Computed example of a mutant assay.
Amino acid sequence: MTDVTIRHNVDRERFEVLADGRVIGKAAYKTHDDGGSPQRIFYHTVINEEYGGQGLAGRLAEVALNETVSEGLRIVPVCPFIKKFLTKHPEYAANTAAPTPAHLEYLKTALVPAARA
């Protein structure tokens, strides 16, 4: 396996998997505060196909969720991968909030390209 690292790219609101300095995967999120409960809504996780089957998505999820918890944010799993990961890792349950219609509406608005707004 090549040299793989995981970093938090705050400016792009995502955690990234890098192989030899090139982004090969990400866990994208939007930060949301519903009035006193800061949350990180994870909406998309992907690893480039040629790097599949190496456990990188799981490593990415673990880093992203651990950092989210350490920052005092609640995890809101909209992304199917993050949802599935959480079912296998109950240690995150106390820091997880179920997605609500308000979360989905926030995402819909937040992800609209600036040109359309």
Rank of each mutant, 00 (worst) to 15 (best):
D20R: 07
V23E: 12
N9H: 09
F81R: 04
G53F: 09
R7P: 05
R12L: 15
Y106F: 14
A97Q: 10
C79Q: 03
Y51I: 13
L73D: 12
F81Q: 02
V10F: 13
L107W: 03
L18R: 07
R14M: 04
G58T: 02
L18C: 06
V112I: 13
V17F: 04
K108L: 10
K30C: 15
A97K: 14
H89E: 03
A102W: 01
V23R: 12
R59N: 11
P80M: 05
A114M: 11
V63T: 12
L104N: 09
R74Q: 09
T2H: 14
L86F: 07
T45E: 06
L65E: 00
A97E: 09
F85D: 03
D20E: 14
A64E: 05
V17L: 14
R12G: 03
V112Y: 01
L18H: 08
K88H: 15
E16Y: 05
R59D: 10
E62F: 13
P80D: 10
E62C: 11
V4C: 05
V69N: 00
I41S: 04
F85P: 08
G72K: 02
T45G: 09
C79I: 02
K30N: 12
K26C: 09
E105W: 05
A110K: 13
N9A: 08
E62V: 11
A97W: 08
V23C: 10
S70Y: 05
A64C: 08
I6V: 12
R74F: 12
H8Y: 13
L107F: 02
P77N: 04
D3S: 15
A93Q: 15
K84H: 14
K26M: 12
L65Q: 00
Y29D: 04
K26N: 10
Y29W: 04
H8F: 13
D34G: 12
G35K: 11
P77Q: 01
T2D: 15
L65M: 00
T96H: 02
G25C: 00
P99Y: 07
D3R: 15
A94F: 06
S37Y: 14
F85H: 06
